[in-house]
Nucleic acid binder design. Structure first.
Lengths: 229, 229
DNA sequence: CAGTGGTCTAGACCACCCA
DNA sequence: GGGTGGTCTAGACCACTGC
């Protein structure tokens, strides 16, 4: 019972959840709701806009506001930042660089980066530990055409992710999650068996249409990404 | 270049991305920004509030608005709804129930449901096809104490998810993603090999603290969940 | 065309919380 | 205490789009 728009929002949400307004039903328009709740239309608008953002209702000009058929179509996930994840578990974070070389952009990576990628990329492989246990294996490629200074950076003490965050902004990113099988190299670094099912996160970032970096993050067996909504 | 608050928002976002305002910097207050952009304070407020929602800035009363150290901490994912996913791929959706029985709630499930679960659950196993290819294997448990009518429902033609959506609302849900290995039964239903790495989504839903259902969704090999932000 | 949501304004009061 | 963001209002004009 604090702010007006929250009250309106909760009230309407409850009516939908309790079935007063069923999926597909048309809700009263903003003016009528404002009268009912004895508030300004802007207040109703704010409440309804947030409900629409959350996916509970669907709004169209002239057509009005309707309860969605399938409520809640999306959820927010926090993007994993490995150091914070490990420290949040009460473990000591440790990082190790295990490989570093400069190569011509492989074709599959060129396709991922969007075709505009040009020459060489810096390839880094590293392991993130929680206490003494390997937690995540990271395969990263950095576009040297966009970030030539990466060639001179020392990634032995500072992880590539933290270096990148401190060095370059990004305007666009794509992230995807999937399951994959541990190959021999990954199994060795993570201390698991070849063939184990691993959770894989891949992320590509751009700065004004120029590809910056692509990374494959392989999580230790049993990793779960969870959210409540 | 359409609405005022979008212009303000984009302008401020660009200044942050270009480094005019660096992480940790204090931004001008809303009144000053309103003067600069020649608009009402409410317009600036709307723009800033959305930037805060997106995680680009951090706002505190009296302290003002600051650029976040680690920009973009979360992304939104659409919750997979299997029929829509398959039809979006231009394939024909088909569903098959492969198993159905009533059992005492197993301990692991009781733990997942929150301890308040009581007696029996309806266990369903089904496969979702895209054209003729198995796309997803679903293992579902429905709390019969909360939904006794599920025992009489015919899940041969209508999938449990669609039945549930049409029958009962929910107020709370937890979803988690991980990787797992295909067991013999799953491999048989999905037409893959035992031991293949599969993407697993698990979801539990509650209605006013009463557990409704828990489901394990195993996706065909190669499934990827992607988002851009 | 006309109803609905989308946005904007100018002003106001308030809650919070740093100094 | 006082500055900042958080919210609310009453009214207005506009854009979209179903009818």
């Amino acid at each position: 019972m604090k702010t007006a728009f929250r009250n309106v929002k909760e009230d309407i949400r409850n009516r939908i959840l309790k079935g007063v307004w069923a999926p597909g039903d048309l809700l009263p328009n903003e003016v009528d709701l404002a009268i009912e709740f004895d508030c300004a239309r802007a207040t109703v608008n704010r409440a309804m806009r947030e409900l629409a953002d959350e996916g509970l209702v669907e709004r169209k000009r002239k057509a009005g506001t309707r309860v969605r058929q399938a409520p809640l179509r999306q959820a927010r996930f926090s993007i994993p930042i490995v150091r914070q994840e490990i420290e949040a578990r009460g473990q000591i974070y440790r990082y190790a660089l295990v490989d570093r070389n400069v190569v011509e952009t492989p074709d599959w990576l060129r396709a991922r980066l969007g075709g505009t990628a040009t020459g060489q990329v810096l390839h880094l492989a590293c392991v993130h530990f929680g206490d003494a246990n390997p937690y995540q294996f990271e395969d990263r490629w950095i576009n040297l055409a966009a970030l030539p200074q990466a060639a001179d950076a020392d990634f032995n003490s500072l992880g590539p992710n933290e270096w990148l965050v401190a060095t370059v902004p990004f305007s666009d990113a794509e992230i995807s999650f999937s399951a994959t099988t541990a190959d021999a190299r990954t199994a060795r670094h993570l201390g698991c068996s070849e063939g184990d099912a691993l959770f894989l996160a891949e992320r590509t970032t751009w700065w004004e249409d120029q590809p910056i970096t692509h990374v494959r993050l392989l999580f230790q067996r049993g990793y779960r990404m969870t959210t409540r909504y």
